[in-house]
Amino acid sequence: MSDRTETTHARTRRLPQINPVWLLLAALVAGIILMNPGFVEPTGYMNFLKRAAPLAILAAGQVYVITSGGFDLSVGSLITLVVVGSSMLTNNDPAATYWVIPLMLGMGLGVGVVNGLVVCFLRVPSLIATLGMMITLNGLAFLWSGGAPRGYLPDTYRFFGRELVRDVPLVGFIPVSVIVLFVVVGILAWLMHRTNLGRQVHAIGDNPVAARLAGVAVNRVRITAFMLSGLSAAIAGILLGGFAGVSTDVGSGYELQAITAAVLGGAQLLGGRGSVFAAFGGALALTAIFTLLNFLGLPQPVRQVVQGLILIAAVALAMHRRKQTGT
């Protein structure tokens, strides 16, 4: 990217633009390596990436909604619904995977469409609209399964979340979920930062009225953002179900973690600013925080306190920087 012919002026201006989330991530990873040198082995960092994958994908989708000026609280229960629904539909039949997975991805898109329609046309604030969706989907997951899912997830389904690609040069092996992670984040980042859709998402988040006047189909873009978030939740659900199997509360808490990750990556709540890569970094950083606290042997309560403090500090710092740079 940075050409050697670039003026020093441009370079100094670019320097402070390194997103602090990468510095935070680097510091955390250094801390983890210090605590546990095994982390530099492929088993160490691949396990880490595998664990971070669902959250990172979720955050990459969430950042679309946040940048366009909304929230999506429904992703956690959508994950649950995907896992529970898959176990109901596959019904122990390995061949069912090939239609169940596309169906689940379609369901993710569908939930996104409904969220988007409710927000755009019923004018329900997204916080409430997706809160309602969260409660509804959770109920649906229970209703569908009668409270206890009926089937196992076949190995074909679990391939994406559980299997490894072996005999890879350099690293030895790569979990399939890590490949999925890079592909999904790559596509979402390209959409956000290299296409018209991404510019429009930013525009309506920045100033919806101005965007509309400039000819942006505000509703269509917002609905698309919710659809991408729903799709990313469905993918995250497939990975989580694959990694750990069926349970009825797989997704709980993921909505707030996804928002936290996006915010750590510098996404601005209520819109106008957000980067898929930085949200990815935010998700890795959040996972790294949890890992580090685990290695330090700190109990759950301390983890909560630290998470809370970091969350506030990250946003306060971002606001401080924004004030200083005057943007």
Binding site: L122, G132, I135, G139
Partner: peptide, 20 residues
């Protein structure tokens, strides 16, 4: 479980009732 489904829909519908 049906209760939860309905509750979610009711919350959204109630807000939509005047926001729409």
């Amino acid at each position: 479980f049906a209760k939860q489904v309905l509750r979610g829909i009711i919350i959204v519908a109630a807000v939509a009732f005047y926001a729409a």
